[in-house]
Every structure is written in structure tokens, then in C-alpha cells.
Simulated scan of single mutants.
Amino acid sequence: MGRALYSMLEWITRFAYINLLWVLFTLAGGIILGLFPAITAIFSVIRQWLNGNSDLPVFHTYWNYYRSEFWKSNLLGLPVYLVSFVFLFNVFFLYANIGELLAWTSAPLLAGILLFLFYLFYLFPAYVHFDLNILQIMKNALLIMLISPVNTFLMVISLSAFTILVYVIPPLGFIFGASFYSFITLWFALHAFRKVQKKQSS
């Protein structure tokens, strides 16, 4: 019992620590340039954990991923920033001109935003899982998202449950927000990736 409790507290500490690293390294890159390397690093470390490499030094491993993937991850971030800006612009435009975001005319926009969010669920896991160029990563993430509705549904359910928990206990969002989001999406995305790879090899 004591050993199980110690192990649980150790993992809680790890997730809180890596979440703190995500915040600090995002700020270190001036937010705009630091966000995507920090996201890539947190996904990369958690992927190592899920693959059984839990004894790696957290800070050193995180820093190595952040440094080595800095420019490539920011290259991936350019289209993400662009699409996000287009969606935000359209949301504010509709709200300013219609006055009600949930009008029937906004349904295609809201559907597009939802699909984009689902796509992001797979994009960063694909980045850290596949050794490919940016265009191939984006293509793989899209294709696997389209053929993995069950995994996407499970991601949404799990993230919704965590969001409700954060709503009830707000400090959890600051302490574990990025790390738990990364863990949840990566867990289900890796399952989808391996399923596809298994079919391709058979």
C-alpha cells in the first residue's frame, strides 16, 4: 500500500513538474516562439514515459527536445497560427455583424473550428511519433484523424471529464493542464497510430 502511494505521488509530481517546465519554456521563447517547442518537448517526454522510459532525467530530456526541435516545431506552428487567426477573425466578424455567435449562419464556421481542434489532437502526437517532414506529419495526422473516430470520441470524453474537474478545482488547470492534455491525447493517438501501422504491416 505504501509503495503504491509513493508511486502515485511520484507520478503526480512528475506531471506537475513537466507542466511547470512547459510554462517556463513557453515564456522563455517569448510565448510565440516558445509555445510550439515547449509543446513538442512535453509530448516527447510523455511519449518516452508511455514507452516505458520513465527513468530519464526530466529536465535534461525536456531541454534536449526543446532545443533540438525549436525551429522545426515553429515551422509546424506557422500554419497552426495562421488557421487559428483565420478562425478567430471570422468568429469576431460574425459576432460583430450578427450579434449572436450561435446563429445558423455560423454553423459551418463552428464545425470547421471543431474539426480543427480534433486535428490538433493528432498533430503533435504525430510530430513526436513519426520521423517525417512537416508536410508528411500534417498529412498523416489528418488521415489518421479521419479514420479514427472512436479514438477522437474517447479523447473528447476524457478531456471533457478533466475540464469538468478543473472547473470544480481550478488550481488543477494550472498545475496539470498542459501535461494532462498531452497525456490524454497522446495515449489515444498512439493507439490509433499503432493500429494503422499494424494494418499496413499485415
Results as ranks from 00 to 15, higher is better:
residue 68 S to I: 05
residue 15 F to G: 05
residue 34 G to N: 04
residue 179 S to M: 10
residue 140 N to I: 10
residue 177 G to D: 12
residue 164 I to F: 13
residue 15 F to A: 05
residue 181 Y to L: 11
residue 153 F to G: 14
residue 28 A to R: 05
residue 20 L to R: 07
residue 76 L to A: 13
residue 61 T to L: 04
residue 12 I to D: 10
residue 178 A to E: 02
residue 111 A to D: 11
residue 63 W to Q: 06
residue 2 G to Q: 07
residue 20 L to A: 14
residue 201 S to L: 07
residue 177 G to K: 08
residue 104 W to R: 09
residue 126 A to R: 02
residue 61 T to F: 06
residue 164 I to T: 11
residue 99 G to H: 00
residue 13 T to W: 14
residue 95 Y to I: 01
residue 58 V to I: 15
residue 153 F to V: 12
residue 130 F to P: 02
residue 170 P to A: 10
residue 1 M to S: 10
residue 48 Q to E: 10
residue 201 S to D: 04
residue 41 A to Q: 04
residue 127 Y to F: 14
residue 30 G to S: 11
residue 184 I to F: 13
residue 174 F to D: 05
residue 181 Y to W: 14
residue 82 L to G: 11
residue 10 E to D: 15
residue 113 I to G: 15
residue 166 V to N: 12
residue 87 F to M: 06
residue 195 K to N: 14
residue 152 T to W: 02
residue 74 N to K: 15
residue 153 F to T: 14
residue 5 L to A: 13
residue 53 N to S: 11
residue 85 F to M: 08
residue 73 S to M: 11
residue 192 A to L: 08
residue 11 W to L: 02
residue 89 F to E: 00
residue 72 K to A: 12
residue 65 Y to R: 01
residue 57 P to Y: 02
residue 82 L to C: 14
residue 117 L to V: 15
residue 132 L to E: 15
residue 132 L to M: 08
residue 71 W to H: 11
residue 44 S to N: 05
residue 141 A to G: 06
residue 19 N to F: 00
residue 180 F to Y: 13
residue 138 M to K: 10
residue 75 L to S: 14
residue 164 I to N: 03
residue 142 L to K: 14
residue 25 F to C: 08
residue 118 F to V: 08
residue 136 Q to E: 09
residue 87 F to V: 11
residue 111 A to M: 15
residue 64 N to P: 00
residue 19 N to Q: 04
residue 195 K to W: 07
residue 173 G to S: 06
residue 113 I to A: 13
residue 60 H to D: 08
residue 23 V to S: 01
residue 66 Y to G: 07
residue 18 I to G: 01
residue 75 L to T: 13
residue 13 T to V: 10
residue 111 A to L: 15
residue 50 L to V: 00
residue 121 F to Y: 12
residue 165 L to I: 12
residue 78 L to Q: 09
residue 61 T to M: 03
residue 93 F to G: 00
residue 194 R to F: 05
residue 135 L to K: 15
residue 27 L to S: 06
residue 18 I to K: 04
residue 70 F to K: 06
residue 120 L to F: 08
residue 65 Y to E: 07
residue 53 N to F: 04
residue 2 G to S: 07
residue 101 L to N: 03
residue 39 I to H: 02
residue 14 R to W: 10
residue 169 I to S: 03
residue 61 T to W: 01
